[in-house]
Design a protein around this nucleic acid. Sequence first.
DNA 1: GCTTGCCTTCGAGCGTACTCGAAGTCCTAC
DNA 2: GTAGGACTTCGAGTACGCTCGAAGGCAAGC
Lengths: 152, 152
Amino acid sequence: MSVTTDRLRGLIETTEGELPPLTVELVRDLEIPDHMTIADVAGLTGLSAHTLRYYERIGLVEVPRDAAGRRLYDREAVGRVVFITRLRDSDMPIAAIARYVELVKQGPSTEPERLALLEAHRDDILNRLHDLQAALAVVDYKITTYGGACGS
Amino acid sequence: MSVTTDRLRGLIETTEGELPPLTVELVRDLEIPDHMTIADVAGLTGLSAHTLRYYERIGLVEVPRDAAGRRLYDREAVGRVVFITRLRDSDMPIAAIARYVELVKQGPSTEPERLALLEAHRDDILNRLHDLQAALAVVDYKITTYGGACGS
DNA sequence: GCTTGCCTTCGAGCGTACTCGAAGTCCTAC
DNA sequence: GTAGGACTTCGAGTACGCTCGAAGGCAAGC
């Protein structure tokens, strides 16, 4: 999981402050060329080329083409893909991401709804964090007291 | 998500220490009757009766029956189900849980492998926590600086 | 005794998110 | 000019974890 995180962390490395929190924004400042092939973006994000095509197919990103019809990701497209990847890493359903992207397309009047969407997702993330910590406690307990059976 | 957590938290309530970390162990001490029907266990865990039958079908729990062939969960079975639910809440794949259960069946000689399984899962949970925190930072950033587009 | 309703088994179906394969195009290098 | 490899589209297939429906059993209440 989180191959993206790893790759980007590799790229960033110098930013040693625990987490690279604004990765999406940092993309702009990395030595990312103006245009990247699908293989480049796959290498950067850890997604497969298949998945990148899939994301485009279902409308999550628009990707410019070169004269021969091949995808040439510009910075905006790369940023979008990285953003999507972060949302997916946190288990935001594709349908919700699609909705968000749709709202962005519709212009600034949709900002309140976008914000609501993000805040709902934020709540989801917090719940997940809570659940994971609870599960971690159980697993840790099992590990430290090891020798017990399943449900005991 | 985490309906289990919520239900159990409801039951426990008195345990106000942030998280109820040893829920599986607490099950023993709750006013849980010696025998529960599938509907009772569904109500307790938030799982559907269908899901409970599914878990049994694939070998995750063995559930005693009454004279009429209906499931009557004893404390061990309830504890097992709650434990499984915790693992599922933390996205442990069913295959891994099945493996664990299998090892428990095989007796104490498999303890090292069980421990390894749990430790691997613990690492997964920590990675997930890390990812979620990174995603949370991105979403928070988007929320606080709101007005931006998708990948910017 | 018959309805109501929850229980049983079994197998099939579904939603999500990819993942893959086929068939064809296009550029590069030899 | 031709072999190689990465690219294209499209539709179909896969994995996981449920989720459901059909057909029937059994017990309690009217």
